[in-house]
Amino acid sequence: MVRRVLPLPSQPRPRPRPDLLRPLTSREPVSISVVIANHNGGPLLAACLDSVRRLLPEAEVLVIDNASDDNSREATRRDFPDVRLVELSENRGFASANNLGCVESRGDILILLNSDAELLEPGLAACIERLEREPTLAAVSPRLIGTDGLPQPNCLPGPSMGRALRRVFLWEPREGSVDPRRAVVWLPATCLVVRRDALESVGGLFDERFYQYWEDADLCARLIRQGWLLSVCDDSTVLHHGRASDLGPRSISSPQRLLWYAWGRLQWFRKHRTRFEYLLILGIDVLFAGRLFVRSLFGERHRVERARASAILQAVRLTMRNESPPVRTGDGSR
């Protein structure tokens, strides 16, 4: 069943709140909560929890389980009795599960961690110290690496009309980290170390209308609008097993994930850009889908390109009807 969604209106630009920019060291000791949204994480969730137990032994740890039907719940209760396990009767999605974890947790610093990610030595101490030392800093992302040892994006380029036009008329920009010495505008939620008071200043963690994908881009845009800064910290490293389908639109293989990604991107423009830019991006996406269809006739990746084009056109149709994609089994996992 297709869900109706409320409009995502553009929001006013609130001024920074100096009273919220107090150093965390004014409230000793700083408490830390780790929130892990899980759906059928299995052994990857166990490895994630083991790394947290070793490298953040003082942290409060919550697992928000999105109606897993594997042995995730039983294994967590058996092997990690000190972990707070919140069991949901239905899969509410990645954003909703993390929001619930944020509400249930007590830490001044929240660590949002994917269930398929592991902390590596020496842990996230450097990220936490950055937040303690810099009161205007809202969130930090550690260095991310894959199981092949290669770096994964931990500082993404912000959505822009220029990038959208380039991928239609010139080339499609590759997914990858941008130079962190420039202004950081988008940190992925793979592992995000964030101040609770920063979240409170923007009305909470994730907008749950972004059921899957782009919820982190929306959060970063709201934090920046409120006057907060974002940063990366390469002194901390996280291993991200990750699904190949979650590394960007080029490699997403599931048609449903492709659809959620394309739809979330349109909702981001609808919420954070002018109406003219939002309508323009709809037209640009239709043109890009046409280019993908043409490429699918000649390229080796014809099935992937055709699936991407179909997902983009379906996302445009749903957006114009003010609807969201149907939720299916397995959606909402990351």
Score class of each variant (00 low, 15 high):
P7Q: 09
L8T: 14
L8Q: 12
Q11I: 14
Q11F: 09
D19C: 08
L20D: 11
R22A: 13
R22E: 11
T25K: 00
R27T: 14
E28D: 12
P29G: 06
V30L: 14
V30E: 08
V30C: 13
V30P: 06
S31K: 12
S33D: 07
V35C: 10
N38E: 15
N40G: 09
P43M: 08
V52Q: 08
V52K: 05
L55H: 05
E60F: 03
V63S: 06
D65R: 07
N66H: 08
N66L: 08
A67K: 11
A75Q: 12
T76Q: 08
R77W: 08
D82W: 10
D82M: 12
R84I: 07
R84D: 05
V86W: 02
L88Y: 02
S89L: 14
N91V: 07
R92E: 06
G93K: 10
A95T: 11
S96C: 13
C102L: 14
E104D: 07
R106K: 14
N114A: 08
A117C: 09
A117F: 01
L119Q: 03
P122T: 09
L124R: 00
A126Q: 03
I128M: 10
E129Y: 00
R133T: 10
R133F: 00
E134D: 15
T136L: 00
L137Y: 04
A138N: 06
A139R: 02
V140A: 06
S141C: 15
D148H: 01
D148Q: 00
G149N: 10
P151T: 07
Q152D: 09
Q152M: 14
P153W: 08
N154W: 12
C155I: 09
C155G: 05
P157A: 06
P157C: 06
G158F: 12
R163L: 15
R166K: 14
V168K: 03
E172H: 13
S177L: 01
V178N: 01
R181I: 09
R181C: 12
R181V: 13
V184M: 11
V184D: 06
L187P: 01
V193M: 04
V194N: 03
R196A: 05
D197E: 15
A198F: 04
L199Q: 05
G203T: 06
F206H: 12
R209V: 10
R209Q: 07
Y213W: 13
E215Y: 09
L219Q: 02
C220L: 10
R225K: 09
Q226C: 12
G227V: 07
W228T: 04
L230I: 09
S231Q: 10
V232D: 02
D234W: 00
D235E: 15
T237P: 05
H240W: 14
R243T: 00
L247V: 15
W260G: 02
Y261C: 11
G264F: 05
W268C: 01
R270S: 12
R270Y: 04
H272G: 00
H272E: 08
L280W: 07
L280G: 05
I281N: 11
G283P: 02
V286Q: 11
V286K: 03
F288W: 15
R291N: 00
G299F: 00
V304L: 12
A307P: 01
S310K: 15
A311Q: 07
L318E: 01
T319C: 15
T319E: 13
R321L: 15
S324F: 02
S324C: 13
V327K: 14
